[in-house]
Nucleic acid binder design. Structure first.
Lengths: 157, 157
DNA sequence: CTTAAACGTTAGTGGCACTAACGAATGTAG
DNA sequence: CTACATTCGTTAGTGCCACTAACGTTTAAG
């Protein structure tokens, strides 16, 4: 009985390749993070806070690409773990100011190595040159196809 | 007010880039196919039938990567549009033999151009050389991370 | 002062990969 | 031949994730 391979016509369609690769990548990263009781989104928020400093939830949402409706739960979890502080903004009582705690920094440090490991394993079959090239090409691609600049973020009346 | 950009640390993480690119690609292809009342999966099945000939549902499932539980609906829809025939296999009464009809061939022809257009638009920001390289790298990546050879396809008792 | 917009929050939708279990048919071992 | 395991098509359901809708509150703009 043959190994029933995927037809060549399908195997070379870029959108299919992207979907498959993204699935593999997400599974790999997700497993690694789950082993640390963490999540993709937690990492993104912690990185953003570390890199760009304290911000409102809406700002974090724009910077990370996480919808502000989903951001609530993410921040709740990070706050439960004492990784962030959430305090009302004095200047604008609509906003919350989200800031990193020392525990959050330590958490980020740990997740950083986990993420790095996962990326390394993900890209293992490629040379370092190829890895850079892949990142570059994907960057060009996502840069080009980008929602009309400020992301819509619908839901306002 | 700043345009609140994505932090550089996030923008260069391969798994994130892959997820983003796959999202863009899937949306693009999905929209194009939806305009033809078609679906990703329909195309995959039609291509597979055209390339490898008639097959059972389970075989199609393995070749396309579509789960056989999802395959049922896909084949129902294709049969409703008279794109495929579904007849019991004489040699093995468990199997159905799925085969392409002339209408299915015409349908595939149409979807082929739709898919090709979508891929072209997806890859527009890349040179043809870069497009080939991207496909090659993604191929290496998905090839390397592959479930222990025959896909598990759980659900048996 | 009225109207519009942005904020945080809750709830819900739709697509998709994937699991579970079934009845029926076939293959395999003793 | 008989018992057991496997494969098939099929139905139902789960979990994740991007995304939408609507709300009360607060601030900004005309």
């Amino acid at each position: 009985m043959s190994p029933t391979p995927e037809p060549a016509r399908l195997r070379t369609i870029p959108s299919r390749l992207l979907a498959g690769a993204a699935l593999v990548a997400d599974r790999l990263v997700g497993e690694r993070l789950a082993a640390e009781d963490a999540h993709k989104w937690h990492f993104a928020v912690l990185v953003t806070l570390a890199e760009a400093g304290a911000a409102s939830q809406a700002e974090l949402s724009r910077r990370t690409g996480i919808y502000r409706s989903d951001m609530v739960a993410v921040l709740n979890e990070l706050a439960d773990a004492a990784c962030i502080r959430r305090e009302p903004a004095p200047a604008d009582r609509r906003r919350n100011v989200i800031s990193l705690t020392p525990a959050g920094r330590r958490r980020l440090e740990r997740l950083d190595t986990v993420i790095a490991d996962a990326q390394r394993e993900l890209l293992a079959p490629l040379t370092t040159g190829e890895q850079d090239e892949l990142v570059r090409l994907l960057g060009l691609l996502t840069e080009h196809h980008r929602p009309p600049h400020p992301r819509p973020q619908r839901g306002a009346r």
